[in-house]
Design a binder for these strands. Structure first.
Length: 590
RNA sequence: CGGGGUGUAGCGCAGACGGCUAGCGCGCCGCGUUUGGGACGCGGAGGUCGGCGGUUCAAGUCCGCCCACCCCGACCA
C-alpha cells in the first residue's frame, strides 16, 4: 500500500476529545474516526489490524472444533419475548418497528438466535456436541460510552456458543474456550488474567472474565497476594474477621443527637465501626407490579454493601424477578417505620419489606444499631433475639486489603478492562425456547449451552494501550496492519526512488505487503508518521543509506539502526519479522 | 438520568464591551527554493460562528428553547 494513496491522514495535534493513549493515538495515526457517541468508523489501518485479530480468533476457535456462521443483527422481538429478556433488559436494547409495525431489536448478543437455530437443527444426541461461532456487529445502547474504543455502543464481537447433551460436555467445551481465549489474547500480544465474574444479564452458572490490567480500566479486580484467587469485585468473596465472642447483653437505648453516619456514631460512642450495624435501603421494582418492594440490607458497620451480591441474593431467594434496583426514597423508608440515619430492622413493619442481613451478622453480637427514632441508637442489638431477617447472605463488598477467602493472604485491588468473557449458560435459553434433543432412551432433554465472547475493537484498543510510547503506537507483529514500513527519502539522482520501487515490488512478490511511504514529504514528517503508525519494521531507502551500503533497518520497539545490503534486504526482512514472531512466542510461552 | 464542561475552517484555538469584508497556528491547493527527524518565501481555497426562535438599526457576542460531544457519577460487557 502506498501511503500517498492510503485513505486516512495522520493528525499532528492531539484531538481534544481523547483522554487515554489508545484513543488519542488511534485517532492521530488515522486508524479510527468517531461518528457519534460510542460509534466509530474503522479506517483501513484499523480494519487490517482487526482482520488479523479476527483471523487469529478463527484459527483458535476452529482448532477447538468451531464452525463459523453468521447470525443476523436485526431480530424480531418475539424470540426475545420468549426468553423473557424483552422485558428484562431495559433501554440498553435498541428497539424499533419495521414498516409493518412489527417490533424489532438490534442484536446486543445472540443467545436467542443460537437457541432458535439449535431447536430447528438439533434433534438427536447424535448431533451433539456442537460449537458454532460468528464475528458480528452488536449494538448496546450504553448509557455512557467512553475512552475511545474501550467502551462503545456499536462493536464487533467474536461470539461462540457450545451446545452439549450434558454438563460434562459443557465443562469440557468451557475448558477448551478458557484455554483458547488465553491463546487468542496472547497471540495478539495482550497479557490478560482470568477472574471469576458475575453472570449479569446472561444468566447461567459459572463465568469468567478476561481482564487486561491497566489503570485506565473501569472494572475493579481483586487478586490474592499469595494464592491464585482472583475475582471481579462485583462477586469477590473475602474472609470476614471473626467478631468478639460475647454473650448477648440487654438492649439499651442511647441518645445520639446529630449522629447519623457510621463514622460519627463510632466516634461519638468511642467504639470501632465494626461494632455497629449499618442499614442500606433499596427499592426493587418488580415486573408487572405497582408497589416496589423495600430492600432493607444490614451489614456490619465497617463494611460496604455489594449491590451485585445483593441483587443475586434476592434473585436466588425466588422473590420474583427483580427488574431494577434503585436507592430507596426517604418517604419509602419512613413508610415502614424506619428512620433514615437512625434505622434498624428492629420494630419496623414487615409487609412488603425484605430484610437481608450479611452472613457475618449472626456471629457479630451486641452491635449498635439505629432505634428508628431521630437522635437515638440501640446498644447490644442481636440478630435472632431482637429481629429476624428474611434472608442471610454474603452481601459485603471486598476491598483492597481484605483477607483472602481461601488462604492467609490479602486481596489486592487492581483496575482492568474486560476484553472477553465466558459463561456456562446451562439450560437458561434452551428451556425457554424448547431447544431439546432426544437421548438414547428417546427422552427429550434440553440442550446444555455455553457462550463465549471477545470484543474485537476493544481488544485492538487494549493492544494499543499496552504497546505505545511518547512517539506513537508500537504494534505487535501479529496484529500490525502491515509488517513493514518502507520509507523513501527522495534523492537527487533518482537512485533511491528506483531502489525503493524495486524493493516495494519485490516485497509484494515475496508475499510481504509493506506500507510504502512514497509521499513527497520532508524526512522529519515521514519519520514521525512512521513512529506514530508504529509498524514493527522500518526500512529506509535514501541516497545516504545507499552510500552507506544499502537500506537502513530499524525496529519500532528497539533503538538501534543498521544497514543491510540491497541484495539481501528481502532475506533480512524475513529474518527480522520471524524474529519478532519468535520473541512474541517466547514472551507468552506459546 | 444527576453533576460539570465544550460547540467558531480538516485539526488545535482566539474573538464575548453587540458595530466594518470573523481571526491565528497547523493542515490543504499553486509556483519557487529546500531535502535524514514535524523547512522557507510568495500567492490561494476553505466558515449558514451547533440548531431554532427572540431582543435590537445591527447578534459569533445578549435572552429562551433544543441538539451534539467530552468528563465524573448512576448503569453496563
Amino acid at each position: 500500500m502506498r501511503l500517498s494513496q492510503l485513505f486516512s491522514t495522520t493528525l499532528r495535534q492531539e484531538p481534544s476529545e481523547a483522554e487515554i493513549s489508545s484513543h488519542s493515538l488511534l485517532l492521530r495515526a488515522g486508524f479510527i474516526r468517531q461518528l457519534g457517541a460510542g460509534i466509530f468508523s474503522y479506517l483501513p489501518l484499523a480494519r487490517r489490524g482487526m482482520n488479523r485479530i479476527e483471523n487469529i480468533m478463527r484459527e483458535e476457535i476452529n482448532a477447538i472444533g468451531g464452525q463459523e456462521l453468521t447470525m443476523p443483527v436485526v431480530h424480531p422481538a418475539d424470540i426475545w419475548q420468549e426468553t423473557g429478556r424483552w422485558s428484562q433488559i431495559g433501554d440498553e436494547m435498541a428497539r424499533f418497528q419495521d414498516r409493518t409495525g412489527h417490533q424489532m431489536v438490534l442484536a446486543m448478543t445472540h443467545e436467542e438466535v443460537v437457541t432458535d437455530l439449535a431447536r430447528r437443527e438439533i434433534h438427536s444426541y447424535r448431533q451433539l456436541p456442537q460449537l458454532i461461532y460468528h464475528i458480528q456487529t452488536k449494538f448496546r445502547d450504553d448509557p455512557r460510552p467512553r475512552a475511545g474504543l474501550i467502551r462503545v455502543r456499536e462493536f464487533t464481537m467474536l461470539d461462540s456458543y457450545s451446545l452439549d447433551r450434558d454438563w460434562e460436555g459443557l465443562d469440557h467445551q468451557y475448558q477448551s474456550h478458557y484455554d483458547a481465549y488465553f491463546r487468542i489474547f496472547n497471540r495478539c500480544g495482550l497479557p490478560v488474567r482470568a477472574v471469576g465474574s458475575d453472570t449479569g444479564m446472561m444468566g447461567g452458572k459459572e463465568a469468567h472474565e478476561y481482564m487486561y490490567l491497566t489503570p485506565v480500566g473501569e472494572d475493579t479486580l481483586l487478586f490474592c497476594d499469595s494464592c491464585d484467587y482472583a475475582a471481579n469485585r462485583q462477586v469477590a468473596a473475602f474472609g470476614k474477621l471473626t467478631p468478639p465472642d460475647e454473650k448477648p447483653a440487654p438492649l439499651e437505648k442511647v441518645a445520639t443527637p446529630n449522629v447519623s453516619t457510621i463514622a460519627d456514631l463510632a466516634d461519638f460512642l468511642g467504639i470501632p465501626a465494626s461494632r455497629t450495624a449499618k442499614a442500606v435501603f433499596f427499592a426493587a421494582e418488580k415486573s408487572g407490579q405497582g408497589k416496589p418492594l423495600l430492600i432493607f440490607a444490614v451489614l456490619q458497620g465497617d463494611m460496604a454493601l455489594n449491590e451485585t451480591k445483593l441483587v443475586n441474593a434476592i434473585g436466588a431467594s425466588g422473590s420474583g424477578s427483580i427488574t431494577t434496583l434503585r436507592p430507596a426514597l426517604e418517604d419509602e423508608i419512613r413508610a415502614v417505620g424506619a428512620s433514615p440515619g437512625y434505622a434498624s430492622p428492629i420494630g419496623i413493619q414487615r409487609d412488603n419489606v425484605l430484610v437481608i442481613v450479611d452472613d457475618l451478622l449472626p456471629h457479630s453480637p451486641n452491635l449498635v444499631a439505629g432505634a428508628n427514632q431521630e437522635g437515638y441508637h440501640l446498644r447490644n442489638t442481636n440478630l435472632g433475639r431482637d429481629y429476624q431477617p428474611d434472608m442471610i447472605a454474603d452481601i459485603a463488598l471486598a476491598e483492597d486489603g481484605s483477607p483472602c477467602p481461601h488462604c492467609d493472604g490479602r486481596l489486592q485491588a487492581l483496575r482492568g478492562v474486560e476484553v472477553g468473557n465466558i459463561f456456562k449458560l446451562g439450560t437458561r435459553y434452551t428451556s425457554a425456547l424448547g431447544a431439546t434433543f432426544l437421548d438414547e432412551d428417546g427422552e427429550a432433554q434440553p440442550i446444555i449451552m455455553g457462550s463465549y465472547g471477545i470484543g474485537v475493537g476493544r481488544l485492538l484498543a487494549c493492544v494499543a494501550e499496552e504497546y505505545h510510547d511518547e512517539h506513537g503506537l508500537i504494534w505487535p507483529i501479529t496484529v500490525a496492519p502491515f509488517p513493514v514500513h518502507l520509507m523513501l527519502l527522495p534523492s537527487k539522482d533518482g537512485s533511491a526512488e528506483k531502489a525503493a520501487e524495486a524493493l516495494y515490488t519485490a516485497l509484494i512478490e515475496a508475499g510481504i505487503e509493506p506500507l510504502y511511504d512514497d509521499r513527497d514529504e520532508r524526512a522529519g514528517v515521514k519519520f514521525n508518521d512512521a513512529d506514530l503508525i508504529g509498524l514493527p519494521l522500518r526500512v529506509t531507502v535514501a541516497a545516504r543509506s545507499l552510500e552507506n551500503g544499502g537500506f537502513e533497518f530499524k525496529r519500532r520497539d528497539r533503538d538501534n539502526r543498521w544497514i543491510v545490503p540491497v541484495e539481501s534486504a528481502i532475506e533480512v526482512i524475513k529474518t527480522e519479522l520471524d524474529q519478532c514472531h519468535q520473541e512474541m512466542l517466547q514472551r507468552f510461552n506459546l
